[in-house]
């Protein structure tokens, strides 16, 4: 276990030195599928990467909060950081139709349910 800890620390240091966070996320189920909302303030569209590998969805991004030349900080409560979070997808999700949109620093992922998994009413035939 201590090896694992050492390893993750090394991994962390290997990346640019910016601290890494798991971005806070809301996972919501609606009738059409699952919606995941992630707070990623300061991440531009170009700095956002969404990877789908097998059943693992990895969302990573980088927020840059660089100080303009000549300014000095009086108070610092957030800074440049990297976001990374992995989600395991269930088989009920239709992987081909996953959609993502970024607005106001919130990434919304829409994971529609596969046709087979959607609730269906079974017709009863009068015999």
């Amino acid at each position: 276990m201590s090896n694992d800890i050492a390893k993750t620390q090394q991994e962390r240091q290997a990346q640019s030195g910016a601290p890494r966070f798991r971005q806070p996320s809301d996972i919501i189920e609606r009738e059409d599928g699952f919606h995941i909302f992630m707070d990623m303030p300061g991440v531009a569209k170009g700095d956002l990467v969404i990877d789908l590998e097998d059943s693992e969805l990895v969302v990573s991004g980088r927020a840059c909060a660089e100080l303009p030349e000549g300014e000095k900080y009086l108070e610092v409560e957030f800074g440049s950081c990297e976001y990374r979070r992995a989600f395991k997808l269930s088989d009920t999700v239709d992987r081909e139709r996953i959609r993502a949109s970024l607005s106001n620093g919130v990434l919304e992922l829409f994971l529609p349910k596969a046709e087979a998994a959607q609730p269906r009413r079974i017709e009863i035939k009068a015999g």
């Binding site: 300061g42 300014e71 900080y73 009086l74 409560e77 957030f78 620093g105």
Partner: peptide, 25 residues
């Protein structure tokens, strides 16, 4: 980071004071 919402960065130069806040969504 968790102390108060929203987190603020305050910086200044000779010309102005700049307040930045993370308010996603």
């Amino acid at each position: 980071r968790r102390a108060a919402y929203p987190p603020l960065n305050i910086s200044e130069n000779d010309e102005h004071i700049r307040v930045r806040a993370e308010i996603p969504g």
